[in-house]
Amino acid sequence: MNIAVCICEVPDPVLPVTVTDGTPDLSRVSRIMNPYDEYAVEEAVRLKERFPGSPVTAFTVTSSGSGREALLKALAMGADRAVEVLSASLADSFQIASMLSAAIRTTFPDALPQLVCCGRESSDYRSAAVPAMLAGMLGMAYAGAVTAFRASDGVLELERETEGGVECLEACYPLVFSAEKGLNTPRKTGIRQVMEARRKPLETLHVAPPPGPLVRFCSAEPVTRKRVCRFAASPEELAGLLLRAVQGDAGEGG
């Protein structure tokens, strides 16, 4: 069976992103693979190692050509092939999912992959929408935010967090799932894997432009988090401040 894994790049959260001319300025940030996508790639590669003959293809869509490093990392982690999908405009989750869906259909014209792995959400916008939308577009079953994935004889046992507990699911292929933190511990890659990755196929795919976005993002503004901290000299004084906050007459923190 074929396994697809969808990944993206996000700004490294060591530095805050600033705003220039009303849009987020990403020119000075360094980019990393979205942390949740590492869990997705790791799970895909583990399945491939357990079930030989299950090649892993990594996909990323980008309007700026900024997804290559993430694809190379996925290849170094053990993916077999990578596809960079180029698009003029990717404004919302709906457009990104549309492009991914088109790219997966183009890459696998005869039969869709049995399994599509995604990260729970991208750490920059945190919409957690692309995986579910992609499942709907591909006509595949969907399980979101999975923390355990056990496959045997085509039957899948999944777990995920719910308020105060763990939910157990039973599913079968074909399936799209999104990976939550805790699913696995992504492997580290060394020089050897990085060198091998450069010899693996990395294609660039142009697919038809997506339909218009369903959500328009406009007017980004920087957030000032800075607050003036009133320091308490003793735990007793802090207790007094806390009581005021709890009783609701000290609540202007915004």
């Binding site: 805050p16 980004a220 503004e221």
Partner: peptide, 9 residues
């Protein structure tokens, strides 16, 4: 978005 550094409409 972006770790809460930016508010977007």
């Amino acid at each position: 978005i972006h770790c809460g550094s930016i508010l977007v409409a």
